[in-house]
């Protein structure tokens, strides 16, 4: 694994301890998850014990220590989306891919995640696929979304 990116990311953040979360975000963006080697390098560069880096990486929802799929599908579970039936959509997607939230399909195509409010409450229920917002979702639209994602994987 090429960990030279880590040095650059940390340098861009001025090697500051108070930028740890931001650095981890960028490391995750680089590798699509947080592998051990880069984290060890972050620990070294920032002077934060690896145990602490690991704690932070597992504490926050945004981080994944497992490789994520090519496509990330996030179902907003905020209150506004909940009252408009987000739970049912989530279940539909779970059925569609045969995985539960937090997992990645076997072909590493799709990672399904839940998020607590993306701040687009007026659009609820919202599904975010690779940072693209799909608002006012219903069963039929979701079914189409699942199909689209499946074709992307082929």
């Amino acid at each position: 694994m090429d960990i030279s990116h880590v040095d650059k990311i940390c340098k861009d953040h001025g090697n500051r301890q108070d930028q740890l979360i931001g650095i981890l975000q960028d490391v995750q963006a680089q590798y699509r998850y947080l592998p051990q080697k880069p984290l060890e390098r972050v620990s070294e560069l920032l002077g934060i014990p690896i145990a602490q880096v690991f704690s932070v990486a597992t504490f926050f929802r945004a981080f994944s220590l497992e490789p994520r799929g090519k496509n990330v599908c996030q179902v907003c579970m905020g209150t506004a989306c909940h009252v408009r039936g987000a739970q049912r959509l989530l279940e539909e997607i779970e059925r569609g891919f045969g995985i539960v939230a937090g997992q990645t399909t076997k072909d590493a195509n799709v990672t399904l995640e839940t998020v607590n409010c993306v701040g687009a409450c007026a659009l609820g229920p919202v599904i975010v696929v690779n940072e693209e917002y799909h608002g006012r979702m219903d069963g039929t639209k979701t079914a189409k979304l699942i199909e689209d994602l499946k074709t992307k994987g082929e």
Partner: peptide, 10 residues
């Protein structure tokens, strides 16, 4: 001012 990004924790 510096921007620090959160990691998603209520």
């Amino acid at each position: 001012i510096i921007i620090s990004r959160g990691g998603g924790a209520f």
